[in-house]
């Protein structure tokens, strides 16, 4: 299901302010890559450009070997998770998660029963069994973000894109969710790009880390590579407090993982 994502020489500016100055990036199928950088470094713009939520000025994005510029938002099939969840506030959890399936054209829309089954399956995956009827306002922040993730997974996305997924949560919940996301990724094997400004989060979660500054990627590599041999003084500065012990152990190629969807 998952595909590799290739970004070639992406440029984007807002008015006269350049947000992305020719960014290239290769993400392997099933890989989990963190986009790390200070605010204003262009990491969120890069993520939104890959999703198709941002018009790009130049460059290309490929999902596998398909040129994403040729696809509409619907055809891209992106699982996007927003920092502030962006749950549909007037719908219960059930309808939130089922939204993407119900929005499909009649021909490809699953039956009502199939949708219900799928929603329960996803709820148990994100460990929120039995909360179908709750409204977003009746959930905690951590629960909401897991609903958002389930909603994104429901459309069987090619790629999962997470924009500061834990940014709005308190420290304790962040740590729990980090571990949980790591496990989930292990089990489902989606190609995942996630944006964060938190070094610990990036180093603890990601297979590889791309460090961005001023619309350019300064360095991309595993946690160990980056900490041991920072290529620029910016990277050196940025990662100097990282405790390498918390980085995930080197793992096998992701292809061997069980695919849930």
């Amino acid at each position: 299901m998952s595909v590799a994502v290739t970004v070639k020489n992406l440029t984007k500016s807002f008015g006269r302010y350049p947000a992305l100055g020719g960014v290239s990036l290769q993400v392997e199928a099933g890989e989990l890559v963190a986009l790390l950088g200070p605010s204003g470094s262009g990491k969120t713009t890069l993520l939104r450009a890959v999703a198709g939520l941002e018009q790009i000025d130049g460059g290309q994005v490929f999902f596998g070997d398909i040129d994403a510029n040729q696809l509409t938002l619907r055809e891209r099939r992106i699982g996007f998770v927003f920092q502030h969840y962006a749950l549909f506030r007037h719908m219960p959890v059930m309808d939130n998660i089922a939204f993407g399936l119900r929005a499909r054209p009649r021909k490809t829309r699953p039956s009502a029963q199939a949708i219900r089954d799928k929603v329960s399956e996803l709820l148990s995956l994100v460990q929120l069994d039995g909360l179908e009827a709750r409204y977003p306002s009746q959930l905690s922040g951590g629960q909401r973000q897991r609903v958002a993730l389930a909603r994104a997974l429901a459309i069987e996305p090619r790629v999962l894109l997470l924009d500061e997924p834990f940014g709005a949560l308190d420290a304790k919940v962040r740590k729990d969710l980090r571990k949980w996301l790591r496990d989930l990724h292990q089990r489902t094997g989606h190609t995942t790009l996630f944006v964060t400004h938190d070094q610990d989060e990036a180093f603890e979660l990601a297979d590889r880390i791309a460090i961005l500054n001023l619309g350019k990627i300064e360095q991309i590599g595993t946690a160990a590579e980056i900490v041991r041999s920072p290529k620029t003084s910016f990277v050196e500065d940025f990662v100097q407090d990282i405790d390498l012990k918390r980085a995930p152990p080197a793992r096998d190629k992701p292809a061997a993982r069980l695919s849930l969807i």
């Binding site: 999703a51 198709g52 939520l53 938002l73 619907r74 891209r76 099939r77 992106i78 699982g79 996007f80 927003f82 962006a86 749950l87 549909f88 939204f99 993407g100 929005a103 499909r104 958002a148 909603r151 994104a152 429901a154 459309i155």
Partner: peptide
């Protein structure tokens, strides 16, 4: 935006 990425028109 969430609705659009989920494939809604």
């Amino acid at each position: 935006e969430a609705a659009l990425t989920l494939g809604a028109s």
